[in-house]
Simulated scan of single mutants.
Amino acid sequence: MMESSVSICPVPSEQLPINEYQELRESWFFSWATLDWVSYVRKMAWVWGWSWLLTGPVASASFAPQKAPGQFILCGAALSSFFIGLVLLQLYLGWMYVRDRLACVNVIYEESGWYDGQCWTKPPEVFTRDQLIATYEVQPILQRLQRTFAILVLSFGIGSLIWIIL
């Protein structure tokens, strides 16, 4: 029964929420959020470490490492964490978009790509499938990203307290 509903679907294949979800899941960048916890933390640490190539010189220009090593490290770490924040924001927005598309009963799409927006109402079986994917596949990814944001904010708070002590 689902085959017939999907086969008469007017939405171009690349704009179907299930295909957008699959594309995001298989993409190089967005798949980071789906990795096991250790691999996910490694990716975030990798971004943080490499961002020191940009933030290290800025931090050293502000705080000489020989004279103020604590401020240098905290400044560089905070600036590098800003890059982690940007990565997390991009991941979160991408997954949130797909989750919203999966959870909505109507699919807005473009037929020719020139401002001819159309709307297709998902049949019940397609809507149910998409709801299940949004709830059990995408929502845990979003929760992981939210927890990571919380840890990042907590680390900024701890770094601020250490800064005051120094």
Rank of each mutant, 00 (worst) to 15 (best):
Q146T: 15
A61P: 08
A59S: 15
V126I: 12
P65F: 15
A64N: 15
V87K: 05
S27Y: 00
F29M: 14
F82H: 07
D100E: 08
A59G: 12
P140N: 03
I164E: 15
F82L: 11
V126Y: 09
C104F: 00
W120I: 05
A77V: 09
P10E: 13
Q146E: 15
S31V: 01
A33H: 15
W95Q: 00
C104Y: 02
D100S: 10
K67H: 07
W32K: 05
V138G: 03
C9E: 10
A33P: 13
V58L: 14
S13P: 06
A61Q: 08
V41K: 01
Y40A: 07
I18N: 02
R101K: 04
V6Y: 05
L145S: 06
W48A: 04
F156N: 07
A134K: 08
G94M: 00
G113F: 08
Y92V: 00
W50D: 10
G159I: 04
L53E: 11
V41I: 03
V138E: 04
W48K: 09
R147E: 14
V87S: 11
V126S: 06
S62C: 11
S62Y: 11
I84Y: 03
L79T: 02
T135D: 12
I158A: 14
F30W: 02
S60K: 03
F30E: 02
S160L: 02
T128V: 08
E20D: 01
A78W: 07
D100A: 08
V126T: 06
L16G: 06
W50I: 03
M44F: 13
L154N: 10
S160A: 05
D130Q: 02
K122A: 00
I165M: 05
T55P: 08
S31Y: 04
Q143N: 15
E137T: 01
F30C: 01
T148H: 11
E125K: 08
Y97H: 12
Q90G: 05
I108Q: 13
Y136A: 06
L35F: 00
T128D: 13
C104T: 02
Q90M: 09
E137C: 09
W120Y: 15
F82S: 12
F149M: 00
Y115M: 13
G49T: 02
S7A: 14
D100W: 09
G157E: 02
S13W: 14
Q22T: 04
I8H: 06
F127A: 10
F83I: 11
F63V: 14
M44A: 14
S60P: 04
I84H: 04
V11I: 04
